[in-house]
Nucleic acid binder design. Structure first.
Length: 258
DNA sequence: AGCACA
């Protein structure tokens, strides 16, 4: 029953932490900016959910339209592992025509604090604030992944297909489609243009049940990879999700539509 | 650019 246990891909780019000196400790919440500000908040959250739910249970998505918080969102996962995978695999992913910038959130989300019992309402919190003092306490366990109440029954229960959502800019968006049901054929997106079928075969044939790779000349950047059955394709999908053939492009793997 | 808790 333990089909796929390995969620990590520690090989190619294990430590992606030292880019611009912006090192933030791990957190089950990811902070996203450089989001397209023309997208309305509800639609934005919906699309974010469609794109990020593949990495694990999402407890909450927060986004605001105020000047200080436009173009940003917080996605709260149930555990740090999901957040890490989401960050690594969706880093720079084109979302509504803009590459997402993803980091760990700086502080623990309220919904998480509530679940682990460390939540302190904001008013009471202010009383304890001191300036100019540097104490080393309070930086406690930020990842208590267990026993959370999935308080995420929100508006995202049934996610509609999200490909090519029109938005006020009038242009076609670049949101990946909502997950298709399991299929022995995988749909690969966001490949570099110079990707060849042979390159993909090298990658995918290492997983059992591999049958063939198909690419469409007229449509660069995508491919189909077929396996014997959907359990085999699922293993391959998890093994190669987010793989970067080039530094820039994280491949996005979903099931092909039937 | 911008780290919140609608």
């Amino acid at each position: 029953m333990a089909l796929l246990e390995r969620k990590d891909m520690g090989d190619m780019s294990s430590n992606n932490n030292s880019s611009t000196g912006t090192e933030v400790p791990q957190n089950m919440t990811i902070y996203i900016n450089n989001l397209n500000e023309k997208i309305k908040i509800d639609k934005l959250k919906e699309s974010l959910h469609a794109v990020f739910s593949q990495f694990g249970k999402i407890l909450e998505i927060l986004a605001f339209k105020t000047l200080k918080h436009k173009g940003q969102a917080w996605v709260v996962f149930e555990d740090v592992q999901s957040a890490s995978n989401a960050m690594r695999q969706m880093q720079s992913f084109p979302f509504y025509d803009k590459p997402m910038r993803i980091q760990y959130a700086k502080t623990k989300s309220d919904i998480v604090a509530k679940a682990d019992g460390t939540f302190v309402p904001r008013e009471k919190r202010r009383r304890h604030e001191e300036k100019g003092k540097k104490k080393k306490d309070q930086h406690d366990a930020n990842q208590v992944g267990a026993g959370l109440t999935p308080a995420y029954g929100g508006a995202y229960g049934t996610t509609p297909p999200l490909s090519q959502i029109p938005y006020p800019g009038g242009v076609k968006s670049m949101v990946p489609e909502a997950p298709a049901p399991p299929n022995n054929i995988l749909f690969i997106q966001n490949l570099p243009n110079e990707t060849t079928p042979m390159m993909l075969q090298m990658l995918f044939q290492q997983y059992p049940g591999f049958k063939e790779v198909r690419m469409v000349e007229a449509k660069p950047g995508i491919a189909f990879v077929e396996y014997g059955d959907e359990m085999q394709s699922t293993v391959a999908m998890h093994g190669l999700q987010g793989f970067k053939i080039l530094q820039q492009n994280s491949m996005l793997i979903t099931y092909a539509k039937k």
